[in-house]
Amino acid sequence: MITLVLMVIAMPAFADEPVTLSSASTAAEANLVDIRALVPDIHEDIKYAGHDNFVGRPVDGYAAPKCLLLKPVAEALARVEHDLRREHARLRIWDCYRPARAVADFVRWAHDLSDQTTKAAHYPNLDKSKLLGDYIAPVSGHSRGATADLTMEQCDAHDRHCKPLDMGTPFDWFGLRANTDNPGVTAEQRANRQRLLRAMAREGFKNYPMEWWHYTLQPEPTPRTMYDVPIR
């Protein structure tokens, strides 16, 4: 039995109702599908399957660099991607469904105040002891299979040489500058964030205002169910 401690990057859909852990042991049982089954060439950069993330190593539950989502969510995200390609743009995906055990791993990392290896890249203006509570807490939309972390890339007229838009911060940057409407970013960065927001909103995704990269499909297919299926 794992301790359910999840990163707070989305408010719970029903704060006054219990969220239960699914008994599903496979992606198929949880109705989780690989986004590449719908968009084979979508750009993935799954951070928690590697070392380029705020814990500095692969995270528990990420045995493969895949974006899994509940089927209706994957279908909606595929529509966003197809719409963007008409503008010679596309998505770059950093994270999708996140097993509950992965967030428990985040909390263990946050308690280890001696590990400061990623401070400069991810929380340069914060003491690590402040991450628990404000940034790491018991609720995450990712474990419900309806949330994705992503950015937008602009390609040339031939849909090649795609480059990420300047959004003002990297992914998983802990601080106010990552807030979607933060006034401290440049006009170009704000416009890029709004462009991503509009593209996602057209297909029913809602942004979490504290993180410009974080989107959840509304309404969620399983708003009171979390999953702990490893990503394989």
Score class of each variant (00 low, 15 high):
Asp115Glu: 10
Ser25Phe: 12
Thr222Ile: 10
Ala137Glu: 14
Arg232Tyr: 11
Arg57Tyr: 04
His161Ser: 12
Val33Asn: 08
Ala187Glu: 08
His161Gln: 12
Gln116Cys: 04
Arg98Gly: 14
Leu32Ala: 04
Leu113Ala: 04
Thr186Leu: 02
Pro164Ile: 10
Tyr135Asp: 04
Lys119Phe: 06
Ala27Asp: 11
Ala78Asn: 05
Thr216Glu: 11
Asp166Trp: 11
Pro18Val: 03
Gly141Glu: 08
Asp105Lys: 06
Asp181Ile: 07
Val107His: 15
Ser143Val: 12
Val103Met: 15
Asn31Leu: 10
Leu196Gln: 03
Gln189Cys: 02
Leu77Lys: 12
Lys130Pro: 07
Val80Asp: 04
Arg90Cys: 02
Asp112Tyr: 01
Cys162Phe: 07
Pro170Gly: 15
Met200Cys: 00
Asn207Leu: 14
Asp228Tyr: 01
Cys162His: 00
Thr180Arg: 15
His51Phe: 15
Pro164Gln: 13
Asp41Met: 09
Tyr227Ile: 02
Val19Ser: 09
Leu38Phe: 02
Ala121Lys: 14
Pro99Val: 06
Pro221Tyr: 00
Lys119Ala: 14
Arg79Ile: 09
Ala78Cys: 03
Cys96Asn: 03
Gly204Asp: 00
Gly56Met: 10
Arg224Cys: 11
Val5Arg: 15
Ala157Arg: 12
Ile9Val: 13
Asn53Val: 07
Gly50Tyr: 02
Val103Gln: 15
Gly184His: 00
Glu153His: 05
Asp112Cys: 04
Pro209Leu: 06
Val59Leu: 09
Asn31Arg: 10
Arg198Gln: 12
Cys96Leu: 01
Lys119Asn: 08
Arg92Val: 11
Glu81Met: 10
Asn207Lys: 11
Ala201Leu: 03
Ala100Met: 04
Tyr208Gln: 08
Phe106Val: 03
Glu220Phe: 02
Thr222Ser: 10
Arg193His: 00
Ala76Arg: 01
Tyr48Pro: 06
Ala74Gly: 01
Asp127Trp: 02
Tyr227Gly: 04
Asp181Cys: 06
Pro223Ala: 01
Leu113Cys: 02
Pro170Cys: 14
Leu91Gln: 05
Phe205Glu: 00
Val59Lys: 04
Val19Tyr: 11
Trp173Arg: 07
Ala13Gln: 14
His161Asn: 13
Trp94Gly: 07
Asp172Met: 10
Thr216Ala: 09
Trp109Asn: 07
Glu203Cys: 09
Leu176Arg: 15
Arg198Asp: 12
Gly56Asn: 05
Pro170Lys: 14
Tyr123Thr: 03
Leu132Tyr: 06
Cys155Thr: 06
Arg195His: 00
Val55Ile: 07
His43Asn: 14
Asp149Lys: 02
Met167Trp: 05
Leu70Ser: 11
Gln154Trp: 06
Glu29His: 08
Pro138Gly: 09
Ala10Gly: 15
Arg90His: 06
Asp112Pro: 01
Ser129Val: 12
Lys71His: 05
Gly168Asp: 03
Met152Pro: 07
Ala100Tyr: 07
His214Cys: 11
Asp60Gln: 10
